[in-house]
Write a protein that binds this DNA or RNA. Structure first.
Length: 336
DNA sequence: GGTAGACCTGGACGC
DNA sequence: GCGTCCAGGTCTACC
């Protein structure tokens, strides 16, 4: 399989094989009792964006992780994540240090929202029982806030195939690469790598269009110390930061408007605000039967989900996701 | 505070 | 194959 982090293939790198058979290249992560890898990975469109790769046949997630985010010459590691009961089995493409192992663990936990306890998900189901049976609650995201922000910017003012192309090219043009089993795999560019890139490169080679300078500036803000005007990631990710202050800070960032800010908020675990885009308006008209101008439909969609309070986005999102799956089948069986 | 138009890309469509 | 139109959210200028 192209791009496979194959550890069982006869052709695979002997060093990698030794690592895996000796157990040194495998990491185990305990997950909450209600966690289901296929359902919880394939719960948001980002699972289809590079460098994520969902293997439909084997029901595992593969991607490359940058374990040294702060550096330009980050040495990436490829991971393949599968599930057995309440344990994730993570196969690594190379030996990692103890420190790197913890970074890998934290990045996977972030992607899969393992910080959301079964109790927290049950509270969502108590609020919206429609999703109790399916167990939906966790929404897939990226291993870093920076990647989530860039993915959000590349999903604005463009149709989905364009977002897919931009993310693939950003990885191939700016990201670090490694060879696994003779196949070149790319990591998502780190903030340091993107901040160093020329805007013209992003435009001409990554096809990001007018987003070029905004993305480079965003990346620069992620690399700057907070005292020099850089983004305060700890503050943004602190549960104590009030929603309104968070929203105001996000819309000040280049390329981030009201929709993108609300989307980043849900990616940060703040589900009380809806990122209203044309898809929301379409859902309002076609599924909820709402009528009127786009602005009026969006307002009515917001009011419709307001009773779900701090879980409004989850109710909205899973309702919409179920419509997609009713048309195409379960997301974990989607082939592109 | 609200609104109009520019910003880019890629896909659909007509010729 | 070429030109035109359209969709998509953000940003700026203007009222």
């Amino acid at each position: 399989v192209r791009g496979d982090i194959a550890v069982t293939s006869e052709k695979s790198d002997s060093g990698l094989k030794r690592l895996v058979t000796s157990g040194m290249g495998v990491l185990s992560i305990r997950v909450p009792s209600d966690f289901v890898l296929a359902r919880d990975v394939c719960s948001y469109g980002y699972f289809m964006l590079a460098p994520n790769q969902w293997d439909v046949q084997r029901q595992v997630l593969r991607r490359v992780l940058s374990v040294r985010e702060g550096t330009v010459n980050s040495k990436p590691v490829a991971v393949e994540i599968g599930q057995r009961g309440t344990t994730l089995r993570v196969t690594l493409s190379r030996e990692v240090s103890g420190e790197e192992r913890e970074v890998v663990r934290a990045q996977i936990a972030r992607m899969l929202r393992l910080d959301e306890s079964a109790e927290r998900i049950a509270a969502f189901h108590a609020r919206d029982p429609r999703f109790t049976k399916s167990g939906r609650g966790r929404i897939f995201r990226s291993p870093t806030l920076f990647e989530d922000v860039v993915k959000t910017v590349t999903s604005c003012n463009v149709q989905w195939p364009g977002t897919i192309t931009m993310n693939r090219r950003l990885c191939e043009v700016l990201g670090s690469s490694i060879k696994v089993d003779g196949v070149k795999l790319y990591a998502f560019p780190t903030a340091a790598q993107m901040a160093k890139a020329r805007a013209t490169t992003l435009r001409s080679r990554c096809r990001v269009g007018y987003r070029d300078e905004r993305l480079v500036e965003l990346a620069r803000l992620f690399t700057l110390p907070v005292r020099k005007g850089g983004i305060d990631q700890a503050w943004l990710q602190d549960a104590a930061t009030p929603d309104e202050q968070l929203f105001k800070a996000l819309v000040k960032l280049p390329g981030i408007g009201p929709y993108a800010a609300a989307n980043i908020m849900q990616l940060l675990g703040r589900y009380g605000r809806l990122p209203l885009d044309t898809e929301a308006a379409r859902h309002g008209r076609e599924v909820l039967g709402v009528k009127g101008t786009t602005a009026s439909v969006m307002r009515q969609v917001r009011e419709h989900f307001a009773p779900f309070g701090e879980d409004a986005f989850r109710s909205y999102w899973f309702e919409m996701w179920c419509v997609y799956e009713a048309k195409r089948g379960p997301a974990w069986e989607w082939v592109k």
